[in-house]
Design a protein around this nucleic acid. Structure first.
Lengths: 343, 343
DNA sequence: AGCGCTTGCGAAAGCGCTTTCGTACTCTAG
DNA sequence: CTAGAGTACGAAAGCGCTTTCGCAAGCGCT
C-alpha cells in the first residue's frame, strides 16, 4: 500500500484553488451550492494536478462506492468471459471498477461470494449465470439481496428470474423451441438431448422450449433420451458417450449450450460418426468459436457482450418499484453441423 | 451503498467481548500485544456475530489493501480469461478480491488503467499480456510502477520483461523454435508467418524463435512472407488472405497465437484448401478450444491458468532486491492441422 | 427599514478502522 | 525493597473524504 502523505489529497486541491475543503468536495462531485465559476476553477485545478479521489475515504465518508461486483460461474468459460467483457466496457466508460468472483455453479458458494461482496461494500452487484430450481437455496440468496437493496445497494442479474432484482433475460425457452423446430423441420425424430446439470433454471427453460416444439409435432420429450451431465465440454462428452451407447439410432443431438456441443462433437469425431450426415448437432449461446468448430456449429445466438452491458446499465439506473426485465431476443444461426435426417 | 449504522462495526465486537476497540483490532489482525486468551475471546465473538471488517475503513486507516488489480488486453480472449481464472482462484483462497480492467493492447490506455488502479490504492497490480518493443512507451509505465513499488505496492507481470517487477515468462522463443522445427521436420520450406501487431514483444520473441530454427536449416526468415496484422482471429483472417493472394505456393502457415490460427483456418476453409493436405497450420498458446477446431490445431501449450496463479503467488511474497523470474516452459502439441509438406 | 428567503461558502463532525502513546501492572535484577 | 524492563491493555489521534450545520451576504417583499 502506498504510504499516506505520498499522494495528492483533496485539501491540496482546495488550497490551490483557494477554497475550503467542503467546497472542493461539492465542486468535484457536482453537488450544488457552489457557483458555476468556483466549481469550474476547482475542476480545472484538480485536472491540472491530476487529482484522483481516494475511493476508500470517499466510500467511508458515505459516498457511493464506485466498484461493481460481478459474480460468474467461471470466468474462463467463453459465455461468461464475453459477458464480463461487456460489463468491463461499460464500467470503464463510467470510471467504475469491476471485481469479478467465481460461484463455481454452487449455490452455497455463490451465496458466500455475494455476502463477501456485500461486506466489501460494493455499490452494485451483478450476478450472471443460471439460477437454481430448488427454491430453498435461492430463497436465502434472495433475502440477502433484498436486505442489500433495501440499504441502497443495486443489483442486476443475467439469466435468472425471481431474485427480486432487475434482470436481463436470455430467450431460453424460445431459443430451445427454435432449435427443436429446426431439427424437426429437417426430418429428425430420434432426437436426444445433452442437458446440463439438473436443477439449473437455464436448463429447465431451454428444455421446456424443446418440449413445446416437440409437442407441436406430436412428440413427447419424456420419451426421448435426456441426459443430464455437467454444463461443460466434459459434460457434453459424457452425455454423448451415453447417448451413443444407449440410443445408437439417434440422428440429432441438442446440446443445451455450446460448451456441451463441443464435447458432443469431439466424441462423434472420435467415433468417426460424420456430422451432419449421420448425426446433426446443435448448441446454444453462439460463443465466438462456434463458427470455427469442425463442423461449424448450428446454434442459437445470445448477445452476451450486450447482455453484460445491459445488466450494468440497468444497475446504474435508480431502483424502480418493480424489478425491470430486459429480454434479449435470440437468433437461430444455421451452420454446418445440421442437415437432413438420414433416410 | 448500505447505509452507515446498518452493519456490524468493530466497536460492537469489542464491546461484546468486553475489550477496547484497540485490543479488538489487534486481536483480529493478529498483532501481538494481546494475551492469547483475550485474542481468542475476541475472535470467537467476532465469528459468532459474523463480523466482517469494512475494507474502506481498514485501508484508509493504513492497513493493507486486500484487492488486486489485474490488467489484461481483453478478458473475452481465451488466453486472458484463462489467466484471469488462475488469478481469481488464488485470490479466492487468500480472501482477496480481483479487479479486472482492459488495456485494449494500447500502451497509453494501459498506462491510464494502471494509474487508475494505483489511484484506487490497490495493494497488488498484475499485468498480463505482451509488452511493447518501443522503449519510450514502456519507460513511462516502468517509472510509474517503480514509484508504486517504492511506496510498498507489489507488482507482477505475465509475458513481459523489463518492467522492473517479478515476472512470469512464457517460453516464447523456444516455443516459436519448436513450431518451426516441427514444420521443417515435416518437409515444409515455403512457410509463411501470420504475425501479430508489430511492436509487441511477444510477437518479436516468437518470431525470433522461428528465425533461429529456420537458420538451423539454412533458411532466412527475411526471405519468407511475414504478415503483421492484429493479434486476433480477425487479424488471422486478414493475414491468411494476404498470404494466399501473394504467396499461393505456401505450404505451411505459422500463426503466432491460436486466435490468429483460427482466423487462418477459417479462410482456408472458405477457400476449400484442405488442411493439412495442402497447407499445414500451427498456432501458439493452446487455448482450450484448440483441440476442438476443425482440424484440431497443432500448437504450443502454455499453462495459462497456472501462469495466473504463479503471478499472484509471486506478488504475494515480499519484494526481493532483484525481480524474480519464473519461466513457464512449453509443450509442442501435435494435432491434425499439420502434416507432411505436399510433394 | 425590517423581515424572511435563498444562495454560496467555511467549520467541523463524523464514517470505521489502525496505530501511536500513555498507563497500570507484573517480573526480574541489583 | 526499589529501579528498570517488559507486558497487556485503553484513550485518542488520525487516514481523506462527505455532509450537516451555521453564518454572512444578497434578494424581494411589506
Amino acid at each position: 500500500m502506498p504510504k499516506p502523505g505520498s499522494r495528492l489529497r483533496l485539501v491540496d486541491v482546495a488550497e490551490r484553488a483557494g477554497v475550503s475543503l467542503a467546497t472542493a468536495s461539492r465542486a468535484l462531485s457536482g453537488r450544488d451550492g457552489v457557483s458555476a465559476e468556483v466549481a469550474d476553477r476547482v475542476r480545472r485545478v484538480s485536472q491540472e494536478l491530476g487529482y484522483v479521489a481516494n475511493p476508500y475515504a470517499r466510500t467511508l465518508a458515505g459516498g457511493a462506492s464506485s466498484t461493481v461486483g460481478l459474480v460468474v460461474h467461471q470466468v474462463d468459460d467463453p459465455y461468461f468471459s464475453e459477458i464480463a467483457g461487456g460489463v468491463i466496457e461499460v464500467a470503464a466508460e463510467q470510471g467504475l471498477l469491476v471485481q469479478i468472483c467465481h460461484s463455481g455453479r454452487d449455490p452455497h458458494f455463490e451465496l458466500r461470494q455475494i455476502r463477501h461482496l456485500i461486506a466489501q461494500r460494493v455499490g452494485i452487484i451483478l450476478i450472471a449465470g443460471s439460477g437454481y430450481t430448488d427454491n430453498r437455496v435461492e430463497a436465502e440468496t434472495k433475502a440477502e439481496l433484498a436486505a442489500y437493496q433495501s440499504l441502497g445497494g443495486r443489483v442486476a442479474v443475467i439469466g435468472r428470474h425471481s431474485l427480486g432484482a432487475d434482470a436481463v433475460l436470455p430467450d431460453n425457452e424460445a431459443g430451445g423451441r427454435a432449435l427443436a423446430e429446426h431439427l424437426l423441420g429437417l426430418g429428425h425424430r430420434r432426437i436426444a438431448v445433452a442437458a446440463g446439470t439438473e436443477g439449473l433454471t437455464t436448463v429447465a427453460d431451454r428444455l421446456a422450449g424443446v418440449a413445446a416444439a416437440l409437442r407441436g409435432h406430436g412428440l413427447d420429450l419424456a420419451e426421448l433420451p435426456v441426459v443430464h451431465t455437467d454444463f461443460t465440454r466434459e459434460g457434453g462428452r459424457v452425455a454423448a458417450e451415453r447417448i451413443l451407447g444407449e440410443h445408437p439410432e439417434t440422428t440429432a443431438v441438442i446440446a443445451l449450450n455450446d460448451a456441451m456441443a463441443m464435447g458432443v462433437l469431439a466424441v462423434l469425431r472420435a467415433h468417426r460418426i460424420s456430422v451432419p450426415e449421420r448425426v446433426s448437432v446443435v448448441g446454444f449461446d453462439d460463443v465466438s468459436v462456434a463458427a470455427d468448430l469442425a463442423p461449424s456449429l448450428t446454434t442459437v445466438r445470445l448477445p452476451m457482450t450486450e447482455m453484460g452491458r445491459t445488466a450494468l446499465a440497468l444497475a446504474l439506473k435508480p431502483r424502480s418499484n418493480r424489478p425491470r426485465r430486459r429480454p434479449t431476443g435470440h437468433t437461430l444461426v444455421v451452420r454446418d453441423s445440421t442437415g437432413p435426417a438420414p433416410a
